[in-house]
Simulated scan of single mutants.
Amino acid sequence: MQEEILKVVTIILLTMLKFIAGPTLGFAGGFSLLSTILITITGMMCSVFIFTFLGKLLREKVFPRFFRKKRKFSKRSRRFVTIWKKYGIIGVAALTPIIFTPIGGTILLSSMGTPKEKIIFVMLLSAIFWACFFSSIIHFFGAQILPSFMQ
């Protein structure tokens, strides 16, 4: 029982950093499709909640201690603004699991002044869609491909 809990917590923590970790590690850990989807959604939404509600505190108090102040208009920040202007809230949320990390997408939406409730809602929809999509593909093709590697 403790092993299973440790697996779940580890997958959630890794999914908070990189979304694809949820479906791949859920499959590798032997979890069912539904369990993998729920673990993946939980991991992404933990990131979203932390960085939505504690984002300002982290930006003002924690980050300055570890990172030097960078120039405002770096290549990366320009790319974020371009994506924001081109795709808006829904586009950023949809691209978060693919291009950004859950942390990056949440910080981008927060820094653009998106209301917290809206961030949580669109990120939840994105997490549900992409968790179902990636987990289904990995569970279907993983079961097909994995036995050939085991020989």
Rank of each mutant, 00 (worst) to 15 (best):
M16F: 12
M44S: 12
F100G: 13
S111E: 15
E60R: 04
L17T: 06
G113W: 01
R68H: 12
W84D: 03
M44G: 10
F67P: 02
I89A: 04
I83M: 05
A127C: 01
I50V: 11
I98D: 08
L38E: 09
P147G: 09
I103M: 07
R78Y: 11
C46S: 14
G104N: 03
T96C: 00
I37C: 02
V8I: 15
I11M: 06
I103C: 02
S111V: 12
F133K: 04
L125N: 01
V81W: 13
V8S: 07
H139D: 06
M16H: 07
V122R: 05
G105Y: 00
G105P: 00
E60G: 03
L108W: 07
T42G: 08
Q2P: 14
T10I: 08
K61F: 03
V48H: 01
T40H: 02
F31T: 04
K69Q: 13
F80W: 14
T40D: 04
T10H: 09
A131T: 03
P147W: 00
L6W: 11
L57W: 11
S32M: 04
F49N: 07
R78P: 03
S35I: 08
E4G: 13
S110G: 00
Q144E: 08
R59T: 15
T10A: 14
F31I: 03
F149R: 09
L13W: 07
A94Y: 00
G88C: 01
L95S: 05
L25C: 01
I145T: 08
F31R: 03
G105R: 02
H139G: 05
K7D: 11
T24G: 05
S32I: 05
F149H: 12
T96K: 02
A21G: 11
E3N: 10
C46I: 13
E60F: 04
F51I: 10
L54V: 00
R65K: 14
A21N: 13
S136T: 15
F63L: 14
G43P: 01
K7R: 12
S148K: 11
T101C: 06
F149I: 13
R65N: 14
F140H: 14
G104Y: 06
I12D: 04
A143I: 14
I145F: 08
R76H: 09
I137S: 03
V8H: 02
K72M: 07
I128L: 01
A131Y: 02
I120V: 14
M1K: 07
I41V: 13
I137M: 09
R59A: 15
F73V: 08
K118Y: 05
T42A: 13
R79C: 02
P115M: 01
K116A: 15
V122F: 15
Q144D: 07
F121D: 13
T96E: 00
K118M: 12
E117L: 08
G113K: 03
P115A: 09
L58V: 08
I41Q: 03
I11D: 03
L125V: 06
L58A: 05
P147Q: 05
A93G: 10
K118S: 12
